[in-house]
Design a protein around this nucleic acid. Structure first.
Lengths: 248, 248
DNA sequence: CCAGGACATTGACCCAAATCAAGATGACAG
DNA sequence: CTGTCATCTTGATTTGGGTCAATGTCCTGG
């Protein structure tokens, strides 16, 4: 379980804090009653498939802890990740019977699930939840558009740096600010999953990680823990716009 | 003006048919009254910038005719298209003051604009319009995810083929079915815009177009008109899933 | 009709990342 | 402790698409 996940696990309370923040950030508590009555928690082991592309989906869910990935595959086996869901992200497609993507637990994963039909009913009857979902979907679309820039125009080194930055930012948003802008990230992804995210091969990911280490941009503590000594400085230097990403 | 655009231009009527289909497909007519009162049409010449990334945006809009592109740029000039808006598509980001992307008219463009504030108010007060916008946003997210697969894993030839297929499909959806599955597409994009869409250089786009022509997969009629002789067969052969795209 | 400029094509060469191929590391079962 | 298996690293080689440069093709306005 990642550091992210651990943090969230300790916050459990009667009204699931993640879902509260995620789906109903600004709703009154009584608006949650209906959702509350139909939620089901589900746990998946790292590597386990949550559902296959083409499966009938009658659940939607919110990520409580861990990391889920959406992937698309061509018949010849080429694979591209098309979604990376971290705690508080929404999973599912209201209004669609059939899943378009394969969902996999990248690390140990805890989902908070709702049956799709009642959830859609709730969307219809409760504009605030619908509005919140629209907002989340728009954010996800923005993230997808940054991802398009990454896949279309960045070099392998820049791709790796951007991914580490995305993960480090989410880490930083949750944790207290780290001293000196130094930040540690537990990679929730294998080299292969990173490659699928970045449109690279796992060999290239490995080589570029080694190169970033050699150049002193990152420190590797085991295979899955990355320390970025100058994260604070690097991120603040290069605003939040569509720049090449720091660490490059 | 593209064939698309011409078709739509002839459909003009009191209640803008595009907006009707796009934003309020299943709304009652009286629900449109409020929208109706605040709409403004705006026309842009091919190549003209509609708004720059970072600009204050106080409009949202619907594409009536023509093609608009959203692009993202890195400081060193590398450019990636992150959105391609055809007639009936929605433009704008309710809830955001500042535009994240540069919007350009790829061909001559007619927009139907609404002031953002009243539009947001309408979203709040009218759940059916909000629901419709959510549906459109989810569709756009799906399209973005197909685009991720294209950028991350497809060869130059496959990228071109996929783009032609996307344009041909929209053409086919509007026009009567063409005889023999033969279809003609007026490219609304320059080679450079195609390259920005596909994450390639314009030289590679040009070379691959020539190669497809040489191989008899497409016919070029001038620079901007493409005929795909076997479109019907190619598309039906390879279902609608995440395949490599036909024409490859 | 011709000149100028935007857009497109084609060629020669190069390089970043893919591919193919060994090994290294590390977690875990027995 | 040791063998197995998944994961990761590193090296040698190939190649698809980028880069640089020259040429071609329209369209438009004078």
């Amino acid at each position: 379980m990642t550091a992210n996940a651990a943090i969230f696990a300790t916050q459990s309370c009667e009204i699931c804090p993640i879902r509260y923040r995620a789906v109903c950030a600004r709703c009154e508590r009584d608006e949650l009653a209906e959702l509350e009555s139909v939620k089901i928690y589900r746990r998946y082991a790292a590597g386990q498939t949550v559902s296959w592309a083409g499966d009938r989906m009658d659940m939607v869910a919110s990520v409580v802890s861990g990391v889920a990935s959406l992937t698309q595959q061509m018949e010849d086996g080429r694979t591209q990740m098309v979604g990376l869901l971290l705690p508080s992200d929404f999973l599912g497609r209201p209004g669609r019977e059939v899943a378009a993507y394969t969902v996999t637990a990248a690390s140990e994963l805890l989902l908070c699930c709702f049956r799709r039909k009642p959830f859609e009913e709730l969307l219809r009857s409760n504009p605030r939840i619908a509005g919140r979902l629209l907002e989340m979907t728009l954010d996800e679309l923005d993230a997808a558009r940054d991802w398009l820039l990454l896949l279309g125009r960045k070099s392998a080194r820049e791709k790796i740096a951007s991914l580490l930055t995305i993960l480090a930012r989410r880490e930083a948003a949750l944790n207290l600010r780290q001293p000196e802008g130094r930040i540690a990230v537990d990679l929730p992804l294998t080299r292969e999953a990173m490659a699928d995210y970045l449109g690279l091969t796992l060999e290239t990911v490995s080589r570029q990680m080694s190169a970033l280490k050699r150049d002193g941009v990152i420190e590797l503590d085991g295979k899955r823990r990355v320390v970025i000594p100058l994260f604070g400085r690097l991120v603040s230097e290069s605003g939040d716009d569509a720049d090449g990403g720091p660490l490059s």
